[in-house]
């Protein structure tokens, strides 16, 4: 659909949350908890951290939670009785106040989980989630969305996007049919926006720092450049912080939890940074050392995904760099790859 431009008074924003909640829609939004900003269910606007740079973790958990039950079973004598979990059992949900990089991160997840055989657990949740993003008035040194095709006002992946254009007013961009449907709940609060409003004026200035085409071609060509990957990753300690805060990392593991009578099968986040990720039963590990795991992380996002799924595996949000305990700065590493 063609996007619709409207104006909403900032003072009416709380009514939106009230209306969503009164209709029974769960609202997930960033909430400040100490130094960490979590994306959590909220009931009122005042609990939402709207003026923060961005949440510590990405919004992916709305459709891809860290722990997800996919099967239940009981054990009776020699028989195993399975009970499938209904992937549709998920309420229509509103993801509110996230950043454009969170919303666009779902494009990569859609491509990964949508690839045959498609993943009903993710896709159903995603389908039932309406995303209202807020464009970014500020950015920090870790942000590089504009270098990977996004931007502080990027709208792909969002159903509605809000941009603060004054202290009192928000520009509302209704971008999708889903967004249009949801806006039915607050149409009375909207007025028409002048098409001459220059949204760019209200956005953070995020400089392009590298040539994306070069990153993609050089990454692909650098598979055997062991020295490059070693140099970049000597300080990497092989935790999963980068992957777990990433809006596009989608790798998972299955674990069964059971006693003698019954059990559940759980899907859990996993990370290619862990040495166990590729360890074979035989004891052989094709990615034996951390530099090979770091290479995988970069190759997957900038070579394999563009080639196989036609999407990039990175939104330039910089969360991985901020979360990294040893200061692995992806923007810096990609810049050096582009200059190879």
């Amino acid at each position: 659909m063609d996007k619709e431009l409207k104006i909403l008074k900032y003072s009416d924003l709380s009514k939106l949350i009230e209306r969503f909640r009164s209709k029974g829609f769960p609202v997930l939004a960033p909430v400040q908890k100490g130094k960490v900003i979590e994306i959590e269910p909220v009931d009122t606007l005042d609990t939402i951290a709207l003026d923060v740079l961005l949440s510590t973790q990405s919004a992916k958990k709305a459709a891809f939670p860290k722990v997800e039950k996919v099967l239940e079973y009981t054990l009776e004598k020699a028989a195993v009785k399975q009970t499938a979990i209904d992937p549709n059992a998920y309420a229509e949900t509103i993801l509110f106040g996230v950043r454009p990089c969170d919303a666009s991160g779902f494009k990569s997840l859609d491509a990964i989980f949508g690839e045959a055989p498609s993943d009903a657990f993710y896709l159903n949740k995603k389908e039932k989630t309406t995303i209202i993003s807020f464009s970014c008035p500020t950015a920090d040194d870790y942000c590089f969305c504009t270098s990977v095709g996004g931007g502080p006002g990027y709208t792909a992946g969002s159903d509605i996007q809000f941009t603060a254009i004054s202290k009192d007013e928000l520009l509302v961009e209704i971008l999708t049919e889903k967004g249009k449907k949801l806006s039915g709940l607050f149409n009375d609060l909207l007025t028409d926006a002048s098409p001459s409003i220059d949204k760019e004026k209200f956005l953070a200035d995020v400089k392009v720092v590298f040539d994306l085409d070069k990153v993609i071609s050089n990454t692909t060509a650098a598979f055997n450049s062991a020295e490059l990957w070693l140099d970049q990753s000597l300080r990497c300690i092989g935790c999963g912080a980068c992957a777990f805060v990433c809006p596009t990392c989608a790798c998972f593991d299955f674990q069964d939890e059971q006693n003698t009578k019954k059990g559940v099968r759980l899907r859990l986040w996993d990370s290619c940074g862990f040495s166990l990720f590729t360890l074979h039963t035989s004891g052989h590990n094709p990615r034996e050392v951390q530099s090979q795991r770091w290479r995988q992380r970069i190759m997957h996002k900038f070579s394999y995904m563009p080639e196989q799924l036609k999407v990039l595996g990175c939104e330039g949000c910089g969360r991985c760099s901020r979360a990294c305990p040893v200061d692995m700065n992806i923007k810096e590493h990609l810049t050096s790859i582009a200059l190879q």
Partner: peptide
Amino acid sequence: EKCIKCYACRAA
């Protein structure tokens, strides 16, 4: 409750 089991504590 906040833990995401990224094992950064263990790795560090």
